[in-house]
Design a protein around this nucleic acid. Structure first.
Lengths: 189, 189
DNA sequence: ATCCATCTACCATGTGGCAGGTAGATGGAT
DNA sequence: ATCCATCTACCTGCCACATGGTAGATGGAT
C-alpha cells in the first residue's frame, strides 16, 4: 500500500481525459488533443488504454470513485446528517468553480445512446453512488431507515439539472440561486 | 398566408435533424445519416441549410417555437394557473414517451462549449421561453406579479434533471416518481 | 540483453463542405 | 404556341481534415 509519488503518465492521461470529457463529452473526447495536452503522442495513449471505450470506462470509474471519496469526507466531517445533506450541493458546485465544467456523468447520460456498454455501466454507478449516499443521509435525518430513495433520486436529479442550467449560462450565482430555491421549497434539508 | 400542404423537404430534414440531435446531440448530428433518413443525398441538404451551424440553429429555433406553442395550448386549455403548472412536466415526459428522447436543449446545453454562436443563442431562448412561461403561471398563482423567476428557474432545472436521469435509465416511471417527489416536497404546485 | 515507455509512420473510415452538372417546372416575350 | 432564360431540387464526385487504431522502430534504464 505504498504511495504513488509521481503521477504516472497513466494518471496524467486519466486526469486530462476527465477534463476533456467534462467539457466535450465522450464523443468529443479524442486521442490527438488528449495526447497533446499530456505532452505525448496519440499512439502512446494506447499503451495504457487499449481502446477509447476502455479509456472512457476508466475515466468514468475514477470519477465515481473520487466522488464517493468526497462524499465520505463530508459524512466524516459532519456527524450530523442534516449538515451533510446541506453540504451535498458543493460536490456539483466545485465543477462549476473549476472551469465551468459539467458533471462528467451528466454529460455522458445525455450521450447514453452512443456509449459503449462498459462506459454506460460506470456512468450508472455514479448515479447509484450518489443516490445511495443521499439515501443513507436522509434516512438518518428521518430516523426511519426505509425507502427515502425516492427523495434521494429527486435531489440528485434536481441538482444535476441546476448544474446543467448554470453551466450553460456560465453563472455560478445561478446555481446557488436555484439551490436556495430548492431549500425554500423544502426539497433539501 | 396559405397553408403548406405537404411537408416540404426542408421540413422533413428539420424533423429528422431534431430527432437525431435529441438522440446524439449537435456533435453527433451528421449530414450523411441525416440525408439517408430523409431519402436524399448529403449534398442536397446544403441546398436548404448552408452549413451545419445553420441547420443546428434552425432545429433549435423550431424546437423552442414548438415548445412555446405547446405551452400556450396548456394555458388556453387551463384557465386555472395551478392546473397549468400541474401539467408542465408533460412537456418533458412526452420526449421520453417518444423514443426515450432527451430535451434537445438539455443535450445542447451540455455541448455548450462546442456550439456555434447562432446555435447557442437559440438554445438559450428555449430556457427563456420556459422560465418566462413558468414565471407567468406562478405569478398568477401567487397573486403577486413580482419575481417568481427564482422559483421558475428552479422548476425548470429540476424537471430537466429528472428527464436526464430517467432517460439514462430508459425508465419513464422513474421520471414520474421524481416529479411526484417534487410535488411532495412542494417544489411544484 | 532486456524491458519499458514512447516514438514515427501509417491506414481506413467518417466528416463538413465545395464545384459543377442536370432533369424538369415556370413564366415571360415573341 | 413556342422559344428561351431562369429557377427548383436534387445529383455525382471530390477534397481536406479529423478520427480510432495498428505495426514496428528507438533509446534509455536496469
Amino acid at each position: 500500500m505504498g504511495i504513488t509519488v509521481s503521477s504516472s503518465s497513466r494518471e496524467t492521461i486519466l486526469t486530462a481525459a476527465r477534463r476533456a470529457a467534462q467539457a466535450h463529452g465522450y464523443n468529443g473526447l479524442n486521442f490527438r488533443d488528449l495526447a497533446e495536452e499530456v505532452g505525448i503522442k496519440a499512439a502512446s495513449v494506447y499503451y495504457y488504454f487499449p481502446s477509447k471505450a476502455d479509456l472512457g470506462a476508466a475515466v468514468a470509474r475514477r470519477y465515481w470513485e473520487d466522488t464517493k471519496a468526497d462524499l465520505d469526507v463530508i459524512r466524516v466531517e459532519n456527524p450530523d446528517p442534516l449538515m451533510s445533506l446541506r453540504r451535498y450541493p458543493e460536490i456539483f458546485r466545485r465543477s462549476l468553480e473549476n472551469g465551468n465544467r459539467l458533471c462528467l456523468c451528466s454529460f455522458m447520460s445525455a450521450e447514453h445512446d452512443d456509449l459503449p456498454e462498459a462506459v454506460k455501466r460506470e456512468v450508472q454507478i455514479f448515479t447509484d453512488v450518489n443516490v445511495a449516499w443521499l439515501d443513507t443521509v436522509i434516512s438518518a435525518i428521518n430516523g426511519t431507515s426505509l425507502s427515502s430513495s425516492g427523495r434521494a433520486r429527486a435531489i440528485f436529479a434536481a441538482i444535476s439539472g441546476a448544474q446543467l442550467m448554470a453551466r450553460s449560462r456560465s453563472d455560478i450565482a445561478l446555481f446557488d440561486e436555484i439551490i436556495e430555491s430548492y431549500r425554500e421549497a423544502g426539497l433539501l434539508g
